[in-house]
Design a protein around this nucleic acid. Structure first.
Length: 555
DNA sequence: AATGCAATAT
DNA sequence: GATATTGCAT
């Protein structure tokens, strides 16, 4: 078998030959498990009682790489005893009984994982990860004889790959692929895991709630190539979701290589962090949310290829969940539209895993949407220019006409819809583009208001007050759009109401003031009077602007 | 190097 | 079809 270091160096069939000590009083169960393990090329030794097992281990410690120990109500003590005696051997507990406290105790005593019976191939297939994990995470001297070879072997495998010019990630992946190949497994190989990790489905489902998160981590975690240096240190016991994109490729390394490389990069980046925050929208609400980027990783339940359906880790698309977007908007607000550049926004957002590119892209869209809306406002504001290429005269669309912060906006007749459920459930990915007190971003047709009553306007342009009975009722000064509404009735732009039925945020107001100062040649929106010099100066100074632009005469 | 825009991909 | 990513020019 593969027990010597020498042999190990050539342990290409890893985990083939890995020795499993199986301690199970139920002989039929043991036989069954053994059969399955052997089918996966593990070498299994069955023991019926802990004493035998212990003595076997003490006789030849190097003979076992991993132990699977059954714990039953009748022999739990013996099992615990065993567990405590073989600290060096990664031990997986298994049982028919579902007892949390027992599980906990086992884990507390050092078990690496607790699997409920019956032990399916899926559950067993990846037990090697515990071996590797242990091998790499045990202090040098503490490393047991049996694990050293494993470590050396794995290390050398990785090394070799590196020399090949491949990236570390690739190497790792490779390694895993190797194992995959032998497992003929569809599902494991945490390709994205830098390190081995227990991955039995059960673990994920039961003990770990972050199941999705795991996968997610891979996908999203960080997309930043630029900054994302993947770290080789990872807590192994974390993930396992195998994104077996290369399930098929596994068998054909050559082919897979190319295709993998790209993905490698990506995924490499994606390992950057484990954002507990970023969760797939569909699974989580990401309460405090922050990093909501991700691609939904298919969840790996206990099913065979669950984890591994291809695709998941491929493009870690940032999912701009409402929460994330909200953060984004807040950042933009905070910075002010003017200073809202990707890098800054990124800083303010503090969302792990989000890249500048992501933000830039989002910003692009954000701006685009706004632009689509603003022009309409202009039109409404100066209907007389509607047909005369107003742009010529007003190169810059002033945002002055936005209704004052507290104005009653005239919400279109339609009801106020939630765009994403209160539960955060982003209904079918509908995103709420309601810039801070601004016209909505996404196409007006799809516009929905966030219906949280009493919610501050800055929370996504959610109207704080119910819309007035009719647009005309809006006080003049309060809402220029009221005027606009009337003005545009004959312009057949009724649907555009949405666009200006929003609350301007303070930022908007700032902007307005600033614009008024900088572009004195622009007419003031109807219903608004020019700000007093005093107030303008105040605003400017408040914003740190000390110099007042000359009074241009241009048109 | 960072941005913003356009093209492309999902 | 919308939205995110990539590419490219600035």
């Amino acid at each position: 078998m593969v027990c010597t270091a020498n042999d190990l160096s050539a342990w290409k069939d890893f985990p083939k030959g890995l020795r499993v000590l199986l301690l199970d009083q139920d002989s039929s169960s043991a036989a069954e498990i053994k059969l399955k393990l052997e089918a996966m090329d593990y070498v299994v030794s069955i023991f019926c009682n802990e004493n035998e097992a212990l003595s076997a281990i003490s006789d030849k410690p190097e003979s076992y790489h991993v132990a699977i120990v059954e714990v039953s109500t009748s022999n739990s003590e013996g099992t615990f005893k065993f567990l405590e005696s073989v600290k060096d051997l990664p031990t997986i507990m298994t049982s028919n009984v579902q007892c949390l406290s027992t599980m906990m105790k086992c884990i507390a005593l050092g078990a690496v994982e607790f699997l409920h019976k019956p032990l399916s191939e899926d559950k067993l297939r990846n037990i090697w990860q515990h071996v590797v994990h242990k091998a790499f995470n045990t202090g040098g001297s503490g490393l047991s004889e049996s694990l050293k070879p494993v470590k050396d072997s794995v290390a050398s495998m990785l090394q070799l790959k590196v020399e090949t010019g491949e990236t570390m990630d690739e190497n790792l992946e490779k390694v895993e692929n190797l194992s995959l190949a032998h497992d003929n497994g569809l599902e494991h190989s945490p390709t994205t895991d830098k390190y081995p990790a227990p991955s039995t489905p059960q673990l994920k489902q039961g003990v770990r709630l972050v199941d999705d998160g795991d996968c997610q981590d891979h996908n999203n975690c960080s997309t930043e190539k630029e900054s994302g240096e993947q770290e080789m240190e990872s807590k192994s016991v974390e993930t396992t979701c195998a994104m077996v994109e290369e399930t098929l490729q596994v068998n054909d390394p050559l082919i897979s290589k190319e295709s993998l490389i790209k993905e490698e990069d990506e995924m490499a980046d994606s390992l950057k962090s484990e954002n507990n925050e970023s969760l797939p929208p569909q699974n989580r609400e990401s309460p405090s949310n922050s990093g909501g980027n991700t691609q939904n990783a298919s969840k790996s339940s206990g099913l065979q290829n669950s984890c591994g359906t291809r695709a998941n880790r491929k493009k870690m698309k940032v999912d701009w969940t409402p929460e994330l977007h909200k953060k984004f908007v807040h950042a933009v607000e905070q910075l002010g539209v003017d200073q809202a550049i990707p890098s800054r926004i990124l800083e303010v957002m503090k969302v792990d895993g989000l890249t500048r590119h992501n933000v830039a892209s989002h910003l692009q869209k954000y701006r685009m949407h706004r632009r689509h809306i603003l022009p309409k406002e202009d039109d409404r504001r100066w209907p007389q220019h509607r047909d005369q290429a107003p742009r010529t005269y007003y190169p810059h669309k002033p945002i002055m006409a936005y209704p004052p912060y507290h104005s009653h906006h005239t919400l279109p007749t339609g009801p106020v819809y939630p765009i994403w459920g209160a539960n955060g459930g982003h209904a079918a990915g509908v995103h709420m583009w309601g810039p801070p007190g601004y016209p909505s971003w996404p196409p007006a047709e799809n516009w929905h208001w966030k219906p949280y009553p009493g919610m501050h306007a800055d929370a996504w342009g959610c109207p704080v007050m119910p819309p007035p009975p009719n647009p005309y009722s809006a006080p003049v000064l309060q809402n220029a759009s009221a005027y606009q509404n009337t003005g545009m009735v004959n312009n057949s732009h009724g649907q555009q109401q949405n666009s200006f039925d929003v609350w301007p945020s303070e930022e908007v107001i700032d902007k307005v003031v600033k614009e008024a100062i900088n572009k004195p040649w622009l007419p003031f929106p109807i219903g608004l009077k020019p700000p007093s010099t005093e107030s303008v100066l105040f605003e400017l100074s408040r914003q740190g602007i000390s110099t007042i632009p000359p009074q241009h005469q241009r048109l």
